[in-house]
């Protein structure tokens, strides 16, 4: 059992105008561990991931990756961090001006300086790993179905064999069977790479399949953090309400209409 802390987030805050989204968030992720952050829509799950990736600048707090604070890192240090990272975006975020294999090979060529032929070979291998044949590699993303796009995006995220992978709502918009296929692929690929992963989702079936640890984000903080097993037995009313999917409970959804 590995015990080194890979990602450590301390007292992270982020506001948009007067709307404070993250209000002092703390989270530790051990090396090789799969942590899933659950929480309702609009609770700031995506903001958390974007802060870690440096796509958004946090207002305050620390984000330690391998012990180094990324909020104060230089451009070069941040560049090195990005080479160790893979990210699967919610909508896939495939480059629609490029073909499927060029998408998968993009990071290999741009960030890792690989030549085109070598990168093409790896792209084909990674596509095969997610169950896509060579015939797909020359298509453009517009010609793919939703499930295939997710697979290509997964192949792109794992292409450079990253140490850390982020998954943003990996199963949203997929039918339950395809969602299960993607969940399986994620667990298998992550295990093969031995990567540390952070997933954000509100799909409970996804949580049960890919999480080692689950954490609940509510009102800008992590209010509960425990093993997947503990998630189903905890007495925490917030977690219980979320995992059972009930409208009744301490979490109040903001709805419009008469009071």
């Amino acid at each position: 059992m590995k015990t080194r802390v890979k990602i450590s987030i301390r007292n992270l805050t982020k506001s948009f105008g007067s709307n404070q989204v993250l209000k002092g968030l703390d989270l530790d992720i051990m090396e090789g561990e799969s942590v899933v952050v659950i929480g309702g829509s609009g609770t700031g799950k995506s903001v958390l991931v974007k802060c870690i990736l440096g796509l958004l600048a946090p207002d305050s707090g620390e984000i330690l990756i391998d012990g180094r604070d990324m909020t104060t890192a230089s451009r070069a240090e941040h560049g090195e961090f990005m080479k160790k990272v893979g990210m699967l975006f919610q909508g896939g975020a495939l480059f629609d001006s490029l073909t499927v294999w060029e998408n998968v090979a993009f990071g290999l060529i741009r960030a890792h300086g690989m030549n085109k032929d070598e990168a093409h070979g790896i792209a084909i291998k990674k596509l095969a790993r997610v169950g896509l044949g060579e015939d797909v590699s020359g298509l453009t993303p517009a010609e793919l179905s939703g499930g295939m796009k997710k697979r290509v995006a997964l192949a792109r995220a794992i292409a450079a064999e990253p140490e850390i992978i982020f998954f943003d709502e990996p199963t949203t918009g997929l039918d339950p069977i395809m969602a299960d296929v993607i969940n399986r692929l994620i667990t298998e690929c992550v295990k093969e790479l031995g990567a540390t992963t952070l997933t954000i989702t509100h799909d409970m079936s996804s949580v049960r399949k890919i999480a080692d640890q689950a954490a609940m984000l509510h009102d800008g903080r992590i209010i509960w953090h425990g093993s997947r097993r503990a998630m189903d037995t905890t007495k925490n009313p917030f977690v219980r309400q979320f995992t059972t999917g009930s409208a009744k409970g301490p979490i109040k959804m903001i709805t419009r209409g008469p009071e």
């Binding site: 990736l53 990272v85 975020a93 480059f95 993009f106 990071g107 960030a111």
Partner: peptide, 21 residues
């Protein structure tokens, strides 16, 4: 379109500066 479909963010995660690219 690249911005709203997160392709710009994807560029950053693939170590490519969007302004440069």
């Amino acid at each position: 379109t690249m911005q709203v479909s997160e392709q710009i963010d994807a560029l950053v995660t693939l170590s490519t500066h969007p302004h440069k690219y």
